[in-house]
């Protein structure tokens, strides 16, 4: 399937956003995007290349390159991309204790979805998810679209403290907190796995392109 060419927008004075115009989640666009990000990463002119669900942020040094040159460099890289290849990755199983003390927003999801807690758990863990982007904080993984009955907006004001391993919902997104952090997602469960561990050789448990499978588990996993 082909992807509509992304827009290239200025982001402040020294960054450019490559923006894919998709509504909600598009696996095709996200695959194209990660491929483009990989191609861009090879050029040292970029101080940061940050791929996400539907956009890539490209940061440059305004002292050495202009906004116009940065934009045309991206246009050139995009035009040279081959046909979208498959992004392959490993499958990672994530044990999750849903609800109770680990899922303070389970009640809100029950109310908005009209489902029971066990239906919510079955629905949320009933499909595999793709890691679409890493970010926000070290180890946080943003996953592909959840079943629409579970969709729920963020908290209007972020919580001051969300524990590491918390599994949350924001709109159609689901994800896992890599560290204790402030955050606005609706928290429905928690995993004891460390998504980021500074003492581990592999600092991160996963990377963009991997597949996540949630395994409902009891509180005993903690």
């Amino acid at each position: 399937m082909s992807v509509k060419p992304p827009r290239i927008l200025p982001y402040g004075d020294s960054a450019v956003l490559v923006d894919y115009e998709v509504e909600g989640y598009s696996e095709t666009a996200n695959t194209h995007l990660h491929h483009a990000a990989k191609a861009l990463r090879g050029d040292p002119v970029w101080q940061e290349i940050v791929p996400s669900y539907k956009s890539i942020l490209c940061v440059f040094d305004l002292a050495t390159i202009s906004m116009e040159s940065a934009t045309s460099k991206i246009e050139k890289t995009l035009s040279q991309l081959p046909q979208t290849p498959k992004v392959s990755g490993k499958i990672i199983e994530i044990p999750v204790a849903y609800g109770g003390e680990f899922g303070p927003d389970m009640a809100a999801i029950k109310k908005s979805s009209g489902l029971t807690q066990s239906q919510i758990i079955d629905t949320h863990s009933g499909q595999d998810y793709r890691v679409c982007m890493m970010g926000f904080i070290p180890g946080f993984c943003f996953l592909s679209e959840i079943p629409s009955v579970l969709k729920h907006p963020r908290h209007p004001t972020p919580r001051a403290d969300v524990p590491a391993g918390s599994v949350g919902i924001a709109g159609w997104q689901t994800g896992i907190y890599g560290l204790d952090s402030p955050g606005g997602w609706q928290i429905i469960g928690r995993t004891p796995l460390k998504l980021f561990d500074k003492t581990r050789e592999n600092l991160f448990l996963m990377e963009a392109g991997d597949t996540i499978r949630f395994i409902p588990s009891s509180k005993a996993i903690f």
């Binding site: 909600g24 996400s52 956009s55 890539i56 926000f136 943003f142 907006p153 709109g171």
Partner: peptide
Amino acid sequence: LSMTSSPLL
């Protein structure tokens, strides 16, 4: 409330 998470600087 449901904007897709995107990069920040």
